[in-house]
Design a binder for these strands. Structure first.
Lengths: 192, 192
DNA sequence: GGCCCGTGCCCAAGATCGTCGACCACGGCG
DNA sequence: CGCCGTGGTCGACGATCTTGGGCACGGGCC
């Protein structure tokens, strides 16, 4: 077996090239050809590591999700439950330019999930991660070991709704307003 | 000026053809060619009435938004504020197959709004309609003439989040659960 | 009644995209 | 040293939206 290439490393390299394109030119420029050019390969070379474009998008999203999970895990949990919960959940909102770009890819995958099973399963997995964060926050705020499923689901829907609004209508939902609304909702949880 | 054609009527006819395709085959089948075939025209004929595909999608979405507004206006407002608010807001959720299909188009336009200005302005207008409904519900439930903007924005985000979850994860967020979660949120509004 | 010309419509082509098949090069293994 | 599988490129295919050129029809004007 000649020309042994570390597929994992090559896939990560291609994912990095994709994010460079997305950060620079937006999600609309994330074509197979442009990403291949960014990475210095021919478009066909990508097929050795990602059979389809959706696979590349999915892999790249897994990477940023892992980063978000790492940011959350790295939180030092200082301050009251209210502050900790807010800091953690804010990691899941597109509050800066980079995370806006990432949310754009998230929205693209959401639209693609209508027809593409690979995108669908990936979205479901990301959904799990957000739900777990919401569970953690609800349990933390209410002081209960088992979070109320209804409160979790409502917080989860609010989070995705805020993310969607911040993405689609940034002038109506600037980062400060998204933070403020999230905080208001958390206040209702701690009060109950 | 020969061959006088009612452009408004022709546009409505094409929009109906698009919805037939979407209802039958899903949003993925809503190509210019398939819609033209459904309407019995050549793809080029569509350009006389819609310059781009996005224009057709936008026009078709305007139609279903007007229908939703009509359903809301036609509500007889019987029952307590809690029941009225729930009935009205449920009109904005994809709780049956037809509205799921419509929400699929909504999601497609949302993704397209990232790069297409026409889709962007259309989404902003639809956003206004939902916000007004949320305002109405909050004012009705709290008994205040002026709805608390923060409560409105939170309800608005929750609504779009529920719609997104019902669309992407129908097994996790079936219609009954979406109704239930909406109701739980409305309860918190009436209590305050 | 007959001729213009503008509207409506189609055909074909252009541009871009994702995907695929055929082909070449290299290099580890027998 | 030769085989063959892996890595890589090129070109093409099919689908898509969009566009330009051209044809036909028919209402308005003389």
């Amino acid at each position: 077996m000649p020309k042994i290439v570390d597929h994992g490393a090559r896939r990560a390299e291609l994912a990095r090239a994709m994010w460079r394109v997305v950060y620079r030119d937006g999600v609309g420029a994330a074509t197979v050809r442009s990403i291949a050019a960014e990475a210095g390969w021919s478009p066909s070379a990508l097929r050795h590591y990602f059979a389809t474009q959706t696979e590349l998008l999915v892999f790249a999203m897994e990477h940023v999700q892992a980063e978000a999970a790492e940011r959350i895990a790295a939180d030092d949990r200082t301050g009251g439950p209210r502050e900790v919960a807010q800091r953690i959940l804010e990691q899941l909102l597109p509050l800066d330019r980079q995370r806006v770009r990432e949310a754009e890819v998230w929205l693209l995958l959401a639209a693609r999930a209508q027809t593409d099973p690979a995108a669908r399963t990936r979205m479901a997995d990301a959904d799990d991660g957000i739900r777990r964060a919401a569970e953690f926050a609800v349990a933390l705020l209410t002081g209960q070991p088992a979070a109320d499923p209804e409160a979790v689901a409502r917080l989860h829907a609010l989070l995705d709704g805020l993310a969607l609004h911040a993405l689609l209508y940034p002038e109506r939902m600037p980062p400060a307003r998204a933070r403020e609304l999230l905080g208001a909702h958390l206040d209702t949880l701690v009060a109950s």
